[in-house]
Design a protein around this nucleic acid. Structure first.
Lengths: 206, 206
DNA sequence: TCCATTTGTCACTGCTTGGTGACATACTGC
DNA sequence: GCAGTATGTCACCAAGCAGTGACAAATGGA
């Protein structure tokens, strides 16, 4: 009769273990939301000892920071359109952004988490994401310029804010303000409405 | 020498005590955010015994539900405009809504909290708020109708979503996507941009 | 006046949490 | 071979948590 306790070899590979923690953190967040996050839960999910979180990352904050750094919409994810005027390029980028965000539950949770309050590690990640977003806008914009008299930063902020909020609500409530947000058709309505808003706002003055 | 321990009479008034708990919960949420919420913290803040939370409310969830029911933007808070077309009325209502939301940190925290995930009590409150919002839209709308071919629910959802998100971000980050959201002038930019978006989208087709 | 009920207080349990020290085991250079 | 170090395991601590039972004090009705 062999021993019942099988230590299962225990990979003994620092790099792989750190990655296991990051993946586990993502799973925990995706499953239990921000509330369930903690060293104990993540260690159990990773199948490793929580002590290693402190040894390899320095603490939970740094682990979450690593997760945040690996999660997001980055330059390259969104192909920079080279055709069309300013409004059309922005709209194209926003559509792709919404698509990607909609398929990434972990990113959604992180986004929602950041809204709950400034929590050390997350806010640094958020700052990084903000900078990245700014760069992206710059790349997407290219040589196109918004029509005169239009407050492009404000309008873009409104569009992105609406997308962020609606995607999160879609995941939690499945709708917002009487607008259902479940099916693909629902989202088609949203993007169509956004398109009509942006094209109207960004069309050159007659 | 009188006793150092002054029991301070202890009001012995159930109604007043329950109210003390609700107020204390609001203060805790406003101060520490969702993370700091708990029976112990609220009881200390209220200056009453946590046991009474269980006796009078049945538990923390019910207390938060009572708080949520008392916190929100309700019919009557927003004067129903009687002039103007559909788009103008909506815009007027949204502006008032944003103003009120911006001045209510507790409501902001509850809003952000609801985004973090379905958490029992809060979600029921959220449902109530949703219904209320629908009613409000109906009252505001009055006899005005949106122009044909315009998906009003989608557009209104986008506008409200953007406002919710930007107000929350204003409180936590002080800005979003390169758009500062601190001063009154910043918000003027937002409302102006929203106005241009909505009037363009809702103006009758030529 | 006496008794039942309500309101408030306190001490306590059992549990989970973040965090650490002590140890076992495997790897690596000499 | 041997020593030193990196990796992983475990037991444990102090602190905070939600929740409860037992009790004291005030209230109000008979």
């Amino acid at each position: 009769m062999p021993k019942a306790k099988i230590p299962e070899a225990a990979s003994r590979d620092r790099e792989a273990t750190t990655q296991k923690f990051i993946d586990a953190a993502a799973r925990v967040i995706a499953r239990d939301g921000a509330a369930g996050v903690g060293v104990n839960a993540i260690a159990v999910e990773a199948g490793a000892d929580k002590k290693l979180i402190y040894r390899y990352f320095g603490g939970l904050d740094a682990l979450l920071e690593a997760l945040g750094a690996a999660t997001g919409v980055w330059i390259g994810d969104i192909p920079a359109p080279t055709k069309g005027n300013y409004g059309q390029r922005m709209l194209a980028a926003f559509t792709v952004y919404a698509e990607k965000l909609r398929g990434d539950p972990v990113l959604q949770k992180l986004l929602a988490w950041e809204l709950a309050g400034p929590s050390g590690a997350l806010s640094r990640i958020d700052a990084a994401r903000s900078r990245q977003m700014g760069k992206m806008m710059h790349v997407i914009r290219g040589d196109a310029v918004p029509p005169a008299g239009v407050d492009a930063p404000a309008i873009n902020a409104i569009a992105l804010a609406a997308l962020n909020y609606l995607v999160i609500r879609s995941a939690t409530t499945g709708g917002f303000a009487g607008m259902p947000l479940k099916t693909e058709a629902d989202w088609k309505r949203v993007t169509t409405a956004l398109e009509s808003l942006l094209t109207a706002a960004y069309e050159p003055k007659a």
